[in-house]
Amino acid sequence: MARYTGPKTKIARKFGEAIYGDDKAFEKRNYPPGQHGANKRRGKQSEYAIQLMEKQKAKYTYGVLERQFRNMFKKATAAPGITGEVLLQLCESRLDNVVYRMGISPSRSGARQLVSHRHITVNGEIVNIPSYQLKAGDVVAVREKSKSLEAIQNSLANSSSVYEWITWNNDTKQGTYVSVPARVQIPENINEQFIVELYSK
């Protein structure tokens, strides 16, 4: 299964923001990686470089590789609405992302693993495909046998995020993907317009 498994702080430093969540190493050295680090004089970035950086940031944030991301862009282009907004909504509708948003896992990579290892159900059926696209009204739950998993319990105990498009019941360990989030509800710092411009060239 292809995915990025390299050092996360290096990627966070590359983009200048902690895209993988709290990161003590990033806080200590929040300048670009490399031999010259903070002292390197960086010239003005070209338009293409800025657009590419934004696309890579989105891909690393959601844990999606190029082919999958391009396919999502094609789907977003064909769908009604603003392409960039629809693209982010498709990313947010992925099962691994919703598991992460619900607080079942502290990270998207952890959420991906829970889905792959058959700990998550959608509408009562086990789904082990992290990229599974949820629809409004779908019920996501922790499988009965997995409710006692320490990793899940710890994550839920430390989770405090609340999103308007998701409901979560901690007693039954299940939540509902109420609706597709509007752009203003998506907290990620991504300029989707740059991604649209890059793919439209």
Rank of each mutant, 00 (worst) to 15 (best):
A79S: 15
P33M: 05
Q185G: 06
F26V: 04
R3I: 10
D171P: 07
G84H: 03
L156S: 08
E54L: 02
S179D: 09
A78G: 15
I195W: 00
I126M: 12
Y60R: 12
V140M: 05
P181S: 05
A12Y: 00
G21E: 11
A182D: 14
A38P: 13
T61A: 09
F194W: 14
L149Y: 11
I126H: 10
Q56F: 12
A49R: 11
I126R: 10
P32D: 04
S93E: 00
W165V: 04
A58V: 06
P130A: 02
A25Y: 10
T176G: 03
T77M: 13
C91T: 09
Q133M: 13
A76G: 07
A76W: 04
N30V: 07
R67H: 14
Q35T: 15
R70E: 06
E144Y: 06
R183D: 06
I190M: 00
G124W: 08
Q174R: 14
F73W: 06
K55H: 06
S116W: 06
R13G: 00
M72H: 07
N123W: 01
Y163M: 08
G6D: 04
T9Q: 02
V178L: 11
D96E: 11
A157E: 13
I152E: 00
L88D: 05
T5Q: 12
G175W: 02
I19A: 00
E144L: 10
K201H: 14
K24P: 15
N189S: 14
V139H: 07
V64C: 09
E85R: 09
S46K: 11
G43K: 13
T9L: 09
S107N: 01
A79R: 08
E188Y: 10
I11H: 06
A58I: 06
F26C: 04
Y100C: 01
A76D: 01
R112I: 01
Q45K: 15
A38F: 13
Y4A: 05
S159C: 07
S105G: 12
D23V: 03
E125K: 13
Y60I: 04
I166T: 01
K44V: 12
E27T: 09
L52H: 07
V64Y: 00
I82N: 10
K145N: 11
T61W: 10
R112K: 08
I120D: 00
V86S: 00
G124H: 04
F15Y: 14
G124V: 04
G84N: 05
S107M: 05
R143W: 06
E150L: 15
S131Y: 08
F73H: 03
Q35Y: 07
S148F: 09
Q153A: 11
R41S: 09
S179A: 14
